[in-house]
Computed example of a mutant assay.
Amino acid sequence: MKVGFIGTGSMGGLLIDAFLTSGALAPCDVLASNRSQGRLLALQERHPGITLGANKETAAGSDILFLCVKPLEFKSLTDEIASCLHSEQIIVSITSPVQLHHLEGALPSKIAKIIPSITHNVKSGTTLCIFGERITKKDKLELLSLLSHIGVPLEIPEAHTRIASDFSSCGPAFISHFLERWIEAAVATTGIDEALITRLAGEMLLGTGKLLTEGGFGPQELQERVAVPGGITAEALNHLRISLEGVFERLITTTHDKYEEDVGKLDALFGQNDIVRSRLDR
C-alpha cells in the first residue's frame, strides 16, 4: 500500500514521522510533495527511502492520499490533482473547515477527513475521523487500523468536528497555556526550580488523563475526591470557579466563529453557496 502526503509542514510532517517511527509504514511506502524543496529534502534526510515528487505524481501513485495544506489552498489543489485520481483511491483531508461535500464534489475518489493532534508525536491522543458516503466498511477499517498506530482513532459526526477538535487538537495548546501561567506564578512566588515544577505539572497531567480514560473517574468525581470540604484544594477550586466564569463559553464561541468563517470561504471557492444556505435554513 502506498500512502501519499501533499504538504509536509507542521502537521503533514508530524504524521509522516509518526507513521514511520511507529512502524505503521516503511519509508518505501511513503510518497510526499511540498512547495518547499527544503522541507522535502529534510524529510528525506530523516527518513531515507521515501519517494519525493510533484503533487500530481504523489496523487497518482497513492492508494491513500493525505491532503495536508491550509484550508484556502484546497480548491487550487483539488483542481490540480483531480484528473490524476480514480474512484478506488482514498483521499483524506486533515483540515477541519474543509467539508466532505467540498471534496466529494471536486474529486472522483473516496473521501475521508481526520483531525490529528500534536500528541501523535508520542503515539498518544485521539485522531478524529469523519467518513464520506463513498467510503466502504473495508476502507474504514483500513484507515482506522493505520491511525491506531499513532493514537486512538475515534469516529465522529462531521457536525461535531469543531467542538471535538477544541479538545483533541486545540486542547494541548489551551492546557499548556494554563500550565504555563500556573508555573510562572509558582516560580515567581516561591522560587521553585522551573524545570522541576514543569516536570511535576506534566506528570500530573499524564496521571489525570489516565484517571479520566482508564480509572473510571469523571471530572466532577475527580474534583470531589481531591477537594476535601473545607480544605486547601476546595478553597482554591472555588477561586478558580469564580475566576473562570464564562471563559470556556467564550472560547467555544471564538473557535466556532472562526470555523464558520472558513467554511463560508470554502463554500464560495468550491461554488457551493447553495449548500451553505440550505445548511443554515435547517
Rank of each mutant, 00 (worst) to 15 (best):
L179E: 08
G171T: 00
R162K: 14
S165R: 03
A186S: 15
A159T: 13
I175E: 09
L143K: 01
L154N: 04
K140Y: 07
E158P: 05
I183Y: 09
I192L: 15
I163W: 08
F178R: 06
R162C: 15
L179W: 10
S176N: 12
F167G: 01
H149P: 00
P172D: 02
S168Y: 03
I183G: 10
E180W: 08
P153V: 00
I183C: 10
W182D: 08
E180T: 11
D139C: 05
K138D: 12
P153A: 00
A186M: 14
A186I: 04
A164Q: 07
D139G: 02
A185I: 00
V187T: 02
H177W: 11
H160S: 14
A185E: 12
H177P: 03
T189Q: 15
L154T: 06
V152N: 13
D166F: 04
I183F: 10
C170K: 04
H160C: 14
D139F: 03
S148V: 01
I156E: 11
A188Y: 09
T161M: 11
F174Y: 15
K138G: 06
I192K: 09
F174D: 05
G191D: 10
H177Y: 14
V187H: 04
F178W: 11
D139V: 00
K138F: 10
V152G: 02
E155C: 06
D166T: 02
G171V: 00
T161H: 02
I183Q: 10
E155M: 04
T161P: 03
I163T: 13
E142A: 13
D139N: 11
S169Y: 02
E184F: 08
E142R: 14
C170V: 09
S176H: 11
V187G: 03
T189D: 15
A173F: 05
I175T: 13
A159W: 09
H177K: 14
K137E: 15
F178A: 13
F167C: 10
H177V: 05
P172A: 02
K140P: 05
P172R: 01
V187R: 03
A188N: 14
E184V: 11
E184A: 15
I183W: 10
S165T: 11
S165V: 00
P172C: 02
I150F: 09
F174T: 01
D166I: 00
A173T: 06
F174V: 05
G191E: 09
G151Y: 03
I183N: 10
F178S: 05
F174S: 03
A188K: 14
S176A: 15
I175F: 14
S148I: 00
S168P: 03
E142G: 06
F178M: 14
H177G: 07
L143Q: 02
L146P: 05
K138H: 11
L146S: 03
G171W: 01
P157M: 04
L146T: 01
G151I: 02
H177A: 12
I163P: 08
G191S: 09
G191T: 04
L144V: 00
K140W: 06
P153S: 01
A173P: 07
V152D: 12
A173H: 06
S165F: 06
